[in-house]
């Protein structure tokens, strides 16, 4: 039994058209950590995430999830361990009803029908979407879609939760609700986001990607206080850490 670490060593990825998306990325994430991966557009965040569950294969370097190195053979097990929530919930919710969508993963794991039903009930309860069970996804609001998308992943009982831009496109209330939900999860969590205020609230640790390399890796508050680093990586201090624009007083 491991401590469910994610270990990335010298990862490099070059796309078919020659673009170098990841140059040399290494980091280790420990069990129960909540880590944000931030960076400008095109820094390589999405490419990195797609490696974590083996959708893209590295040109060189190694990824280990838990006890296993990521290879063709370990792929099914790793995809169960790493639950990935996509940025656009419409891509994730492809089944005709919420129930079918949440049950999709467990059925693929080969679980018996009763067990699947129980799991669907439990995770929908957990994300506060039990009342949506028989609705088709196109009748859901943005916030509801996001919560159901998370449920579809939770139903596979993953150990690591990977989310691409969890708060994008949500109204302030739905964003707040979602952040409350994410805070309660005991999983190891990896987020990419441009919502830096969410990062400050949810992730004690931050990894900054810049042009396919890790520019910084450390405590979130330290990173956001390093003005030179932020400027170089086309980032900005989160609003909650900036001075008040009206009275000019600092935090």
């Amino acid at each position: 039994m491991s401590h469910h670490i994610v270990e990335v060593k010298h990862l490099q990825h070059i796309y078919a058209d020659g673009t170098v998306a990841l140059q040399d990325v290494s980091f280790t994430i420990h069990h129960g950590e909540s880590v944000a991966i931030i960076g400008a557009n095109g820094a390589g965040k999405s490419t990195l995430l797609l490696h974590l569950n083996g959708y893209l294969t590295a040109h060189s370097g190694e990824i280990r999830i838990g006890d296993f190195p990521l290879t063709r053979k370990t792929l099914p097990e790793i995809r169960r361990t790493v639950g990935m929530v996509f940025q656009d919930a419409d891509d994730q919710l492809f089944m005709p009803t919420v129930f079918d969508d949440v049950a999709f993963g467990p059925f693929n794991l080969g679980l018996p029908v009763e067990e699947v039903k129980q799991r669907v009930r439990d995770v929908l309860e957990q994300v506060g979407a039990a009342h949506l069970k028989f609705k088709p996804p196109y009748h859901l609001s943005g916030g509801e879609k996001k919560r159901v998308a998370i449920a579809t992943v939770l139903s596979m009982s993953p150990d690591i939760l990977v989310m691409d831009e969890p708060t994008s496109g949500l109204d302030p209330f739905a964003r707040r609700q979602l952040m409350g939900l994410l805070r309660d999860f005991q999983h190891t969590k990896i987020f990419t986001s441009h919502d830096l205020d969410m990062v400050v609230e949810l992730c004690p640790r931050t990894i900054v990607l810049h042009q396919g390399t890790v520019k910084a890796d450390g405590a979130t508050l330290e990173i956001f206080n390093d003005d030179a680093l932020l400027a170089e990586c086309r980032l900005e201090k989160p609003l909650s850490m900036q001075g008040c624009p009206v009275c000019g007083k600092g935090v």
Partner: peptide
């Protein structure tokens, strides 16, 4: 591109070419 992302989402949840339904 959307089709590719959906396929990704399906693979991420263990899709191996069969649809199950009860």
């Amino acid at each position: 591109l959307r089709a590719e992302r959906i396929h990704m989402a399906m693979l991420a949840r263990g899709f191996i070419g069969e649809f199950h339904s009860h």
